[in-house]
Computed example of a mutant assay.
Amino acid sequence: MALGPPNITQTLLPPPTYHASLILTSAARPRRHRHHSRDAARLWDFHPPRPMSITFRQLEIFVAAAGDCNFRRTAERLGVSQPSISNQIRALEGHLGHNLFERRRGSPPTLSDEGRIFLEKAKELVLGRQEMEQQTRNTRGPRAIRLAVTATPLLLDAYIRPRLPTFCEQHPNIQLDFVPLHPTRGAAPMVLAGEVDLAVFTGDFVIDERLQSEVVNTVAVSIYCSPALARRGARPGVKLADLPWIMPPDEFRPTRFMWRILKEAGIEPRNIIARSQFPDVIANMCLEGHGIAVLFDHFAASGLEDGRIVKIGPQLPSTSLVLLIGPRAQRLAAQPAVELFRQATRRLASR
């Protein structure tokens, strides 16, 4: 059994055939000075230079770019320039002999049919190299595993972090790197791009054969406000949509969810007085009587008990807590981390 990494070129495609007219460009051909003989130039045509082999860096950039379908975003995430991303992709395409992306002026690049096929093999090679490097670095004791994970801030602070001391003591070979959940892209693109291996979020169930997805809990949400604001809303002629509201920024994915369930309930807020990307800030502003907010019932329970807030308006539908498990987290060694997230989110009160 071979212990070293596979030869990338041999693994990805059969040995290429070369033709001088396809390989040599005007920059690559030697200039025919007067002292060059025709025989020397003809000899160059029959012995073209061998193209450079595919590198793991090109594969890593391609996998990242395939997840983003936006070279500028990929460059920002990897900390390199956008021309560097484009050059690496074009070099890879030149070696393979076909385009991996469809490029149209004014539109973001999308994977071609060949690109989608090549992506699966590229992911296998990148993952295999990462696992080999990890195994090399950990030659003693149980095989260590490192996972990038993400969760919504409230879930992380209230339910996952309190369990971490016990988890770290029981599983010293598992290192969890917590990555902030991207507010506009959401969890699924982060897992598909390989940025995180495990994610839990509130929202719709994700159907993708590349991921394991499961609904681990159902959480109730309601409309809340101060008693004084509720009395104001009960006056004749006053509409709930015209009262002051506190919402997340429009570009955030949770905002899309809120707008959808409010619209289904017949409410379209027209008086948004404040926005915040932090759920605890929205909850505190609601508790202080500044406006109406959509809150998870389990986070609003204390304010409801002491009378600082009340429920108002129609009953809203519950939302799902979804667990996404990427390829690395699907391995047997990673199951304790998966179970940590699963059990922590199951503690939330469900309707």
Rank of each mutant, 00 (worst) to 15 (best):
T9N: 15
P15L: 13
A20P: 10
I23Y: 07
T25S: 13
E60P: 06
F62G: 02
A64H: 04
A75R: 04
G79Y: 05
S81K: 13
Q82I: 12
S86W: 01
R90N: 14
L92P: 03
L96E: 01
R103W: 01
G106D: 14
T110F: 00
I117F: 08
F118D: 02
E120I: 11
E124P: 11
R129P: 12
E131D: 14
A144H: 12
L154T: 05
Y159D: 03
P165L: 07
E169K: 13
I174F: 13
P180T: 04
L181H: 03
G186T: 03
A187F: 03
D197Q: 08
T218P: 09
V221T: 14
Y224D: 02
L229H: 08
L229E: 02
R235P: 09
P254L: 02
R260T: 08
L287R: 05
L287G: 04
E288M: 04
H290Y: 06
F296R: 08
F296M: 14
A300L: 05
E305K: 15
E305C: 04
R308A: 06
I309V: 09
L316M: 00
A333Q: 07
P336Y: 01
L340K: 02
F341E: 07
Q343Y: 15
A344P: 09
R346S: 06
S350T: 10
